[in-house]
């Protein structure tokens, strides 16, 4: 484990480094969200922003989990528990959404929605 005393100064350095990395990534997140150059495509949020924003968040999260939460030092058991948790979490996310957007039903949905008025010119 990392707490053997000779390791401690090294540990401290890695904690500081992670802290700084997290701050940097926060700035990146905000920049992606606000700065026009990162606003891929037309103004406003779109799929690209989500991918970028969430990937940065995922990187930050794994830094926290691995270093701050000492996951990098744990044995397999916790990984197993977290793996299952993650699977069920994914199931909850994906299946629920899947149930709402069934690919077969979707074909009917497109027929249903009226799109005509959107083509009107404003004013």
């Amino acid at each position: 484990m990392a707490d053997a005393s000779h390791d401690l100064s090294k540990t401290k350095k890695s904690y500081a480094a992670v802290g700084i990395a997290l701050l940097v990534f926060t700035v990146v997140t905000v920049t992606i969200g606000l700065a026009p150059i990162f606003d891929m495509g037309p103004p406003g949020p779109d799929a690209m922003d989500f991918v970028l924003g969430l990937s940065v968040a995922a990187v930050k999260a794994s830094l926290v989990a691995l270093i701050f939460m000492h996951l990098n030092h744990e044995k397999g058991l916790i990984y197993k528990i977290l793996l299952f948790t993650f699977l069920f979490f994914l199931g909850l996310m994906i299946l629920t959404i899947f149930a709402d957007t069934d690919p077969i039903l979707e074909q009917f949905e497109t027929l249903k929605t009226t799109r005509g008025w959107l083509m009107d010119k404003p004013r």
Binding site: T26, T29, G33, L54, V56, A57, V64, M69, H70
Partner: peptide, 29 residues
Amino acid sequence: LANRVEVGGLFWHFVDLIWIFLFPIMYLL
């Protein structure tokens, strides 16, 4: 005590971790 702080810290980091996701999805995207 160190153990307690470690597990208290685990919870604290988790709270931080949730915020890391909340921030972009609630404020930015």
